[in-house]
Design a protein around this nucleic acid. Structure first.
Lengths: 242, 242
DNA sequence: CTTGAGCATAAACATATGTGAGTGCGGCTA
DNA sequence: TAGCCGCACTCACATATGTTTATGCTCAAG
């Protein structure tokens, strides 16, 4: 079980120290592990889960469908992300979560989470923090969507995903595996597939990235950051007493 | 002090019951009350507050400025909102908060919040819930921004603000006081001021709303909801054990 | 009463991004 | 090996929304 919950512990420990008891509590919180195939829903809108899903391996997105059939993706999840920790308190899912690739998922019962909040105040704060960072990412996306050009928005997203993957040990040098289609990127950025294609080509032509197959390589981090007006403070990468 | 923290308690009690001890803990958490004038910052980007601000009266927005000077508003806060509760754990503000009107603000020291998390697990969950609802609102805004037309997006925002104000007792029948300019609405929706004007006129012409001065009246709730594809689940208005 | 600031409104025009309808490639699957 | 499907990519054209500039209202300050 230790190996399995690693990515989350890895993430949390970059923000504050965890005691052995806390790590054990997290590891023991997992009731079972589930595999979800690509293109299957992990949770559906309207569900009232009794367990939260911790993504051990694979990629998943939170999404919502609007009336004309269009889709908006409001979060991209990478290994180590506690996909729907919020359902512990929100109760009813107001959006679905879809597996982009085969996903290995650890399930943590809400009753166990409740016990953690009763017995481990500091660990509770760390889990709370985890959801707060999700919120910070949402705000950042909102800003990028509302006030940046499509190109800048894309650059911003790439910077973020690169750092988040790196943080959980999924970067090999300047490249990460990003198994996400241009249509899915469009649903994330609020753009059409065609425009996503235009924008990616621009970033490539500018020598900022390479993106072949699923391998995304950052060719010029500094300029990419500048184009995307990216600063990483919202990801709370600092280690602090919390 | 009781009267002052009322709007938050009012809000929380619509989601779950609070014990007397919990209410007292909340009331005693306030170290002092501060007045911030309209157009002044309550917190600035980069700040590391040692207290969180609970809005007792007035309107405030969270915002971020991007390079070309444009602004994106990522949250509109109404009385009862815990404006920057997240700074308790996030530590560094990645955005600013601006008072739209004169604001009366209760300050809660982070040390007190820490004590609450140590001693009142259920109250902690309720505060956590509060930040989770902020996150849910962000996701909803993201969807509206990315995939709805400007008109639908505006209708959606109006539905949300109406309900949130009603929830804290700030609606008189079908009308609420909304002291927010069209430029500010633009910064919220990611639109230009000119287009905000067009869109508001359309909603008026359709007989959905009246908006004169600061008084916003809902003329046809059902149709407004439909135009904005609004459903209120994300606001977690249900009372549940949490 | 002026004056001026801030705001809503307007019209003409500009453009970033969307739409629709394809092509072609690589990798499954039969 | 053939056929098909998903996906990246293209082009021509459409349009929602942005930009610029200006007008007139309202209200507070003098």
């Amino acid at each position: 079980m230790t190996r399995m919950t690693n990515p989350l512990i890895l993430k949390l420990e970059q923000r504050d120290q965890l005691s052995d008891a806390e790590k054990r509590a997290l590891e023991n919180a997992v009731s079972r592990v589930r595999i979800v195939e690509a293109d299957e829903d992990i949770v559906r809108e309207g569900d009232r889960p009794s367990e939260s899903s911790l993504l051990l391996d694979g990629f998943a997105v939170r999404y919502k469908i609007v009336s004309n059939g269009r889709r908006q993706i409001s979060a991209i999840h990478v290994p180590g992300d506690f996909i729907d920790l919020h359902s512990f308190l929100l109760k009813t899912m107001d959006h679905g979560v879809l597996a982009l690739t085969t996903c290995r998922i650890a399930l943590v019962p809400h009753t166990t989470l409740e016990k953690i909040t009763d017995e481990f105040p500091h660990l509770t704060r760390m889990l709370w923090l985890n959801t707060l960072i999700d919120g910070a990412i949402h705000r950042e996306w909102l800003t990028a969507m509302g006030r940046l050009s499509a190109t800048a928005h894309m650059a911003h997203l790439i910077c973020e995903l690169y750092l988040r993957l790196k943080m959980v040990g999924r970067a090999e040098g300047d490249t990460v595996q990003l198994p996400i289609t241009q249509a899915e990127l469009g649903d994330t950025l609020g753009l059409s597939t065609v425009h996503v294609n235009r924008v990616l080509q621009e970033l490539r032509k500018e020598g900022l990235i390479r993106f072949q197959g699923e391998a995304l390589t950052i060719l010029d981090w500094e300029r990419l950051k500048k184009v995307g007006e990216f600063t990483s403070t919202y990801l709370s990468l600092q280690n602090e007493d919390r």
